[in-house]
Design a protein around this nucleic acid. Structure first.
Lengths: 196, 196
DNA sequence: GAAGTTACGTACCATCAGTATGAATCATGG
DNA sequence: CCATGATTCATACTGATGGTACGTAACTTC
């Protein structure tokens, strides 16, 4: 038997559990996915899951956070590659829209998240990831005198809501590649409303 | 024993069931609310619920539709009271935002709806109620030459998504009366983006 | 290497969605 | 008005599952 530290054991088990949770919750939704199924997919048992996580909800929360981290990371890579702030904002919107083509993201973040975790918790997590990056972009534009004054956090939240709906539309599309520009165009006009 | 027609018996029972479903699903959410609890609150038993509805999901769907009908009705009363189409649109946004102060609406329509019914079903129902009225307003503005061309259904969907997020923000606010104007102002600018 | 802690598996319980079945209520043809 | 059939609903039951209790194995510390 190989000898590992407790930390290594924990990390590997929790990692496998979260990965399995993302897969199963993402593919079938929260309610139809049993803890036993997640544990089995992770090569463990319910006992391990309940040892490392408070319950099914905590496991889902971990999957939700993982999804958020992934999108936030993708969004944060943008600014460097774009010249001006408005190009970066538009690119960010497209990135978010495209990310909605991932079924796991849609199911966990957009569909089940609010119902399972509650809106407050969802917002708190998003505010530390996706919304943080988006709001950062708006603040940057405002600081550069390129965006109308106003309540930027509210503005970010509204833009985010619009983009999520757009993402669901996109995912539902029979030809996402063809529809992305049309949806992105509408979203862009939303942003342009605040451009100076 | 009073003698009633079958239709009367059915209508009263289903009506009480849907009313109880709206109350309990709205107050505690879908998952924590049992069919037995709904049936008991309606003065009936699970048998009646399963006779009139396909299952828990169908009962929730009925509650969801009832919520939608209520908002759609409120929105449809607006045009008559406003002079021009843009005033009506702005008023409609405020109405939708204010409706989000109702906890039952938030829980059933905004939080649980997508998770329980799936996005396709939710959109289908909304397209027959709330979204229909909203889209109708946009089309009216476009027909009057007062709105920029574009994909109006997509536009309506995005506006709707933004308003729902705004509504959740409003509900979370410590002082909704004070925050409504600020949120509505941001939402109005969204709309103005498309004004000609 | 002994004692204590952490990680995990297994057996069990309570709850609840859904089903089966039968009884009560109502409709309808004779 | 009664007999037969359909509809409405209540009750008893089953299976699945989230969560708990407890025991064992792996690791850590002294």
């Amino acid at each position: 038997m190989i000898r590992r530290t407790q930390a290594e054991r924990s990390d590997e088990t929790t990692g496998r559990l979260v990965r399995a949770a993302r897969e199963l919750f993402g593919a079938h939704g929260y309610a139809p996915t049993s803890i036993d199924a997640v544990a089995a997919a992770a090569g463990a048992t319910k006992g391990a899951a309940y040892h490392h996580f408070g319950g099914k909800l905590a496991l889902f929360r971990a999957a939700f956070v993982a999804e958020q981290e992934e999108v936030a990371a993708a969004l944060e890579r943008i600014p460097a590659s774009e010249s001006d702030i408005w190009a970066a904002l538009r690119r960010g919107c497209r990135t978010l829209l495209e990310h909605c083509l991932d079924p796991g993201f849609r199911q966990i973040v957009l569909l089940d998240g609010p119902s399972v975790l509650g809106w407050e918790t969802v917002r708190e997590i998003e505010y530390a990831h996706t919304l943080r990056v988006l709001l950062g972009g708006l603040e940057l534009a405002a600081a550069g005198g390129q965006m109308a004054d106003g309540d930027l956090p509210v503005r970010a939240q509204l833009v985010f809501g619009a983009l999520c709906e757009g993402g669901m539309l996109l995912a539902r599309s029979a030809d996402p590649a063809a529809d992305l520009p049309r949806i992105a165009a509408e979203a862009d006009r939303f942003l342009e409303a605040f451009r100076l």
